[in-house]
Amino acid sequence: MKIFLIPCPIAENTSTEVLPPQILTALQQTTHFLVENVRTARRFISELKLGIQIESLTFEVLDKDTQSKTVTDFYKKHSSVEYIGVISEAGCPGVADPGALAVSIAQQQNIEVIPLVGPSSILLGLMGSGFSGQSFAFIGYLPIDKAARIRKIEQLDRDVAKWGQTQIFIETPYRNNALLEDLIAQCAPDSLICIACDVTAPSGFVQTKKASDWAKAQPDLHKKPCIFLLGK
């Protein structure tokens, strides 16, 4: 048994632009899947029009609430299967994603893991930011509590100025505008902030500006998938 880590698009209707042939081949070879969302995964495979009979496939949910035993039992039950695919809700499995659990258990059991190339908003944002790609950290979500979030932003801004390490983080889409306001307010005026919004979509953009410049014209990021970066 081998585990395919199968990326999927991060923007709608972009499969033909962002998915390399290796992903299509892997999907054609795979009949059993661990997926973050069954409905989304079924639609993703179906829309590729690979001639796969969706009803013949086996899916098991692997989301933030999935326990290790569920994955272990799935591997044991389907140990005779040649390939098992792991599919995220969007982007690359295992990167800021519950798929990491499937990979961790596979590594513990000496099951071969095959990561496939595909879109990652984190890496695409870093690539387009102009910030250091030699030293960077993905923070995940900043604290929800206002005071704690402000302290974290101040700390990240100081770390960038002192060490030059790029700081990457995300927010729930409906709180994007509030986060940008906090970044503008708490970062030094000359600090550079990059916003990677709707990456790979026709409406997407990756822009880096000083905090003071973002303050003059704040984009509306409400309910849009975004990556935020601080760097130099």
Rank of each mutant, 00 (worst) to 15 (best):
Y83V: 02
P93L: 09
P119G: 00
I105M: 13
A137F: 11
L101P: 01
T40N: 03
D182S: 10
R42L: 02
D157S: 14
L34R: 00
G128D: 12
L229A: 04
V18H: 01
E82G: 01
S15M: 05
A41Q: 11
L179A: 04
R175W: 07
R175Y: 06
A211D: 06
T25M: 08
K49Q: 14
L34T: 02
A188F: 15
T30R: 09
Q134E: 10
K210C: 07
I105N: 13
L34E: 07
V61N: 03
Y75L: 14
I170L: 06
A201Y: 02
G125E: 07
Q67M: 07
I144N: 04
A185K: 15
R175F: 09
T172S: 03
D73H: 03
K224P: 00
L19C: 04
G140D: 14
T70I: 11
N110E: 14
V103F: 03
L34Q: 02
I10Q: 01
L124P: 01
Q67R: 08
L142M: 07
T14V: 03
A11Y: 02
G51R: 15
D65L: 12
G51H: 12
K77D: 12
Q22A: 11
G125D: 10
K146S: 13
D97N: 03
D97I: 13
D145E: 14
Q218N: 02
P202Q: 12
S56I: 03
T172K: 12
F33T: 01
F44L: 01
E89H: 04
L19K: 09
P143R: 10
P189E: 04
L142Q: 11
D63G: 00
L180W: 01
I153Y: 11
S191C: 10
K77Y: 15
Q109P: 02
L124T: 04
E154L: 15
D198W: 07
D198T: 01
F131E: 02
D157H: 13
T16Y: 10
C187H: 15
L179H: 09
N13A: 12
D159S: 13
Q107P: 02
S203Y: 10
E181I: 12
G85P: 02
L116W: 07
A217C: 08
R151Q: 15
A178V: 15
A217N: 14
L62D: 10
E112Y: 01
V81M: 15
I52L: 12
A100N: 09
N37A: 04
Q28C: 02
V160I: 13
I84W: 14
E47C: 05
S191R: 15
R43L: 10
Q53D: 14
P20F: 03
I54R: 08
I227V: 06
Y75G: 04
S56G: 02
P189T: 08
I45L: 10
Q108N: 14
A106I: 12
T66W: 08
C226Q: 06
A211R: 09
G231I: 04
E181G: 12
T72D: 15
A100D: 14
L48A: 13
V18I: 02
Q53I: 06
Q186S: 06
A90H: 05
G204W: 09
K224A: 00
S212A: 11
P143F: 13
I45H: 11
V35S: 08
Y83P: 04
P21T: 07
G231C: 09
E89I: 01
F205K: 01
A178W: 15
K232S: 14
